[in-house]
Design a protein around this nucleic acid. Structure first.
Lengths: 213, 213
DNA sequence: CTCTAAGCTTGAGCTACATCAAATCGCGGA
DNA sequence: TCCGCGATTTGATGTAGCTCAAGCTTAGAG
């Protein structure tokens, strides 16, 4: 039901067209697997359009969504020679890839990725604060603010994640996330039009909850 | 009592000598503040020697140690124009700084920092998994393994952090960290020679606990 | 329009960790 | 050597969020 037409989901063959160096852009449907944790790390990828989530699994199946990516964000990283995270699209998405060697040969690319890495590292630092020190309600408030670009203030925000995915991002259970949404609604901070459509009513109150995020 | 001679702690004047562009290396004593969250982000820094921790604070004083750095690691990052984290030395340390503009002018530097950013981003991804999905005992086991370079296997590991600092890194309280240490000892996985000296007895058992980290 | 299944909400009870409160340890200084 | 203070350990109790278990909502298929 969540799956759509699936032109190229990446879930059938695990390295779809990654070996052809000249195919720069790849198009994915929503809920497609782009790459798998543990696969050989051949290329570095960049989100051109759409939203992607990076996940890690524990042997017993516990999952953490470690990062949410939008246009410009970089993934496909590796501490050793295999990917450290899996990547799945949240929406339809366009993704570019670069050979790992290109980083040394192309200073412009390197400079661009460097800036992006800096931003992503800062975002991860914030996320560590969220995961380590914030209450469930604060986490959800923070999450909603983080998804709210200036343009969307006042209008309605579309979540392209299930409660389970949000929970795995925030280090909670889906029930706790659901209860937090209900509580934010009860307090008049947000309105829930549908389960996946939120309108932030009291931006100031949300910021206060989220620790002036 | 934790403080030593303090040649230049950085805690007296908040921008010690950061403005002189030609002073490349700075020497800090243990437990010195290198930079403050919220200060104007003038330079990018690199650990040459020693250990540094990056921390973030919530308005009400809750603290998270977001990253632990060793030689080669980079800090002093900013999403906007101010530092996103404070940085304190854990041990005596030597630190280099680079002008932010140097990243564009010096491709060699950019390439080196890029590699390091990749490693640090991967480490943050792991840390998100730890903070979001692991039990207290698993977190502490993971922490101890992470601090154990191959060279130290078998020999004794010196923690240069208090229980409170470890707790703030792992998203726990100092009491819970202390109990976890005791439990690891009880299970025969580690020996506690002193509060800050640990010997890992059962490396396999620790890895299993930490989720094959 | 109805049926179905995935996703969401809500309730009741449980548990891991936090909090509060004493001891106890161990190092630096007198 | 003894003292004092910060750090650590340990115990007793509280609670936020997890787990288990219903129902409810909604969108897509027939």
């Amino acid at each position: 039901m969540r799956q759509m037409i699936e032109e190229r989901t990446g879930s059938h063959s695990r390295h779809p067209t990654l070996c052809e160096p000249h195919i720069a852009h790849m198009r994915f449907t929503a809920h497609a697997t782009v790459l798998h944790e543990g696969d050989p790390a051949r290329r570095i990828m960049e989100v051109v359009e759409g939203a992607v989530m990076l996940t890690k699994l524990l042997p017993d199946g516990r999952r953490q969504v470690v990062e949410l990516l939008g246009p410009g964000d970089v993934f496909g990283l590796a501490a050793c020679d295999v990917y450290a995270c899996s990547a799945e699209t949240l929406t339809a998405a366009i993704i570019t890839t670069h050979e790992r060697g290109a980083l040394d040969r192309d200073p412009t690319l390197a400079a661009r990725l460097l800036r992006r890495f800096e931003a992503q590292l800062c975002a991860m630092h914030s996320h560590a604060l969220v995961l380590g020190r914030m209450s469930a309600l604060e986490r959800v408030a923070f999450f909603l603010l983080r998804l709210t670009p200036e343009s969307v203030v006042g209008s309605t925000l579309h979540l392209s994640m299930t409660r389970q995915e949000i929970a795995d991002f925030l280090g909670l259970t889906l029930e706790t996330v659901s209860r937090a949404f209900s509580e934010l609604k009860r307090r008049g901070l947000v309105a829930l039009l549908r389960a996946d459509e939120v309108k932030i009513h009291d931006h100031g109150g949300m910021r206060r909850l989220a620790g002036a995020a």
